[in-house]
Design a protein around this nucleic acid. Sequence first.
DNA 1: CCCGAGACTGAAACGTGTTCTCATTATGCA
DNA 2: TGCATAATGAGAACACGTTTCAGTCTCGGG
Lengths: 210, 210
Amino acid sequence: MRSLDTLTFEDRGSPAQRERRRRILEAATALAAKGGFEQMQMRAVAEHADVALGTLYRYFPSKIHLLVSVLAQQFEVAGENLARKAVPGDTAADRVMFVLGRTTQTLQREPNLTEALTRAFMFADASVAQEIDVVAAHVRRMLLLAMREPGTPVDVPEPTEEEVAITKVIGDVWLASLVQWVTGRASAHDVATSLDVAVRLLLREPRPLA
Amino acid sequence: MRSLDTLTFEDRGSPAQRERRRRILEAATALAAKGGFEQMQMRAVAEHADVALGTLYRYFPSKIHLLVSVLAQQFEVAGENLARKAVPGDTAADRVMFVLGRTTQTLQREPNLTEALTRAFMFADASVAQEIDVVAAHVRRMLLLAMREPGTPVDVPEPTEEEVAITKVIGDVWLASLVQWVTGRASAHDVATSLDVAVRLLLREPRPLA
DNA sequence: CCCGAGACTGAAACGTGTTCTCATTATGCA
DNA sequence: TGCATAATGAGAACACGTTTCAGTCTCGGG
């Protein structure tokens, strides 16, 4: 079965097909925002998007694939917004915290949607690797952008191993915190605190060679 | 050794009930070890444990509850083994890495079981908070034990905020790495590397390394 | 314009987690 | 002991993700 959903593949197909895909993602987003993971049901998505259930499954081979694709779409928008103007903050830690705080706030404004997307992301297995990579790349890029001096291109010069390692750790902490938040095991404040601690510990200055 | 509250809960009921509970956990563990999350099916657990399906659900209100309870049990055993002798290593980082490496290795020796337990843990919602807390407490305790000088009791003196924050971050990274491993998005080596990086960054000695 | 290959639809069907029903058995108490 | 209550067993039933299938529609090549 052909997978249709990475960015490069998104533009494939006839206009009618792109339109169907758009309607499906829109319906999935709306339903997830309304009732979270459990209430975003495949039959309901198909109905709202006005496609047959079989067609929905041709476009997205599982509920998890669909939700992770929604997540990728959300991060794409967030990444674009972020790239529009320079990240404020004097130190890397400040800038990273700004980005994390802003994105986290956006996510928390739609708690049901975030719950659905986070759980899907966590439950995804190897078959969703392609979609997962899209999301991971967005996150990595956002964090690297923030760690660099404002105005510096994100990939020139190549990020150091240390920088990549730090973005990985921060991404992990962010994800784990979000999971705790969506499952009601941590408050929004707890999430902010965890991130603050992690960023302070990881990006404290001056950074001795590690 | 009854160090944690679960045991008080676990010991409730008649001998026949405790025996049923034991058989259920045993069957769940065996089935998960054999076929992972998907193949640990509730009907099969009930059959292997020789209880009716309804009874299984009276003891564990969902598959997730059951698997997280198995996880708590596993960590209890691991914690006991760990407490038996002092953690080797000259620095906190060394000792934490030792504990993480050893536990991770144990988990990776039963990949299907670990997959099942990790996914259940990640998928758990607020209704599983009690079981989740047991697991989290075990992890926190293990890491604090390793960070302290060998022989120091883990709770005397009270862990500092910084110590607790660090254990939280390390726990998050550990969990995120495990998720990536069980979903085939990272190799065992990748997990070790992630943990090593995180621990080095978080627990680097105050003075630049000698 | 027509044809054939896919794509789409509508509906049924399947698998597994979960719930429900009701008869039977175990338990604790007067 | 005998009874009220709760726990258990056996199995049907239900919900939702997923698959399948027969028929219909669409579209690009001849």
